[in-house]
Design a protein around this nucleic acid. Structure first.
Length: 155
DNA sequence: GCCAACGTTGGC
DNA sequence: GCCAACGTTGGC
């Protein structure tokens, strides 16, 4: 079981949306970055835990945890001309983009803020806080994962 | 293959 | 809204 950090903009999709129907699995679609796609394809596995990170919002940080319930398969939004994620250069025969299905595991009582993460010397090697990193899917080491879990207040 | 121009991300 | 730090595109 590996840990990952998945970014989302809460105004588009937040952990509260996952929490609306906690029993339901949700497709994590719209990944349009090759590095992130390769992680989905090669490394992200069913049962892995995701730290759900809210970005571009008043308080950026980790809002909770989800689990991967289905490994990588073609992201259907790439074939839909009506979708903002439509990719005319992709084809059903040779899909370019992948997605996974996730299910809510836990909503933190309080966000583990980017500010807190930056303030913790034990997390200074996290990809999230390394300069210039914008990757939307990031590996989280077991050590960092344990520290983040310890920082979180469980609801 | 180079690289300038352009687009995106995301904190502040 | 600003802007740094990328990633992508496309002419050559």
């Amino acid at each position: 079981m590996a840990y990952w950090l998945f970014k989302t903009e809460p105004q588009a999709f937040s952990i509260e949306d996952l929490a609306l129907r906690p029993e339901q699995t949700e497709p994590w679609d719209g990944i349009r970055n090759y590095q992130a796609r390769n992680l989905l394809r090669d490394q992200v596995q069913t049962g892995d835990q995701l730290f759900i990170y809210h970005s571009s919002c008043p308080e950026p940080g980790i809002a909770g945890i989800a689990r991967v319930v289905r490994g990588a398969y073609p992201d259907h939004t790439q074939f839909d001309p009506e979708s903002p994620y439509y990719d005319p250069k992709s084809s059903e025969e040779n899909p370019r983009w992948l997605m996974v299905d996730v299910q809510l595991a836990d909503v933190f009582a309080e966000i583990v803020s980017l500010k807190q993460i930056k303030a913790n010397p034990a997390l200074e090697e996290m990809m999230l806080v390394r300069k210039g990193n914008r990757l939307s899917i990031q590996p989280v080491t077991p050590e960092h994962g344990q520290i983040l879990l310890a920082m979180a207040k469980r609801r």
